[in-house]
Amino acid sequence: MDIDLLSTAYSILAVVAVGSALGVVFGRSPVASLLFMVSSLASIAGIFVILEAHFLAAIQVMVYAGAIMVLFLFVIMLLNLGHDYQQDLKGWAWSMVALFVSGGIGGVLVQRFLDLRGTGLSLGLGLPNGNALDRSIEELGALGVIAEPLYTTYVVPFEITGILLLVAIVGALVLAKRNVEGGGTVDGGAAGGEGGR
């Protein structure tokens, strides 16, 4: 009974996540797309809860559905993109190509899933050492399971991420700073190399 409840909840969340992801793509206005994205991210947070990754679920809600999406909404409002805009896909031919490719990939994955369903094998998505994970969650707590490898095994990617963020900040500042040295703004000095004079 317990298992059934979980899988029902999973099915609902999965359908909502995929459905809202489609809504992001097909939404007419950017604001609608954005709200669909919030709903998609929230459902994924729910899936994390089912997987007993409570910390990830909280992070997912706070960082993605909360902070980042609010920033997105701000930018869209500030840029005044909230109204309808024209279709910019290059006609039906490209839509068909896109549909064909994504449908093909989805079809193969679904077929693979159906093949494996009767055999009792996993799709390869399950964790190979699920019991070990349970044990370490008991030992370290949900947070420790993430934090411990992050600062030991995966310390190199962690440090590189620091550099990556620094580079992104520097790049954004360089490109977004209003005043170019020597006077003149981006708009005023766009005429070429003479702008700074």
Partner: peptide, 28 residues
């Protein structure tokens, strides 16, 4: 030797180069 490091290296390189590409802001 880890795909995560490949990916992060790729991003550090790419984001630096995106910024460098657009560096000359007086040039459209």
């Amino acid at each position: 030797r880890d795909l995560i490091v490949v990916f992060l290296g790729l991003e550090v390189m790419s984001i630096s180069v995106y910024a460098l590409t657009a560096f000359n802001r007086r040039d459209r």
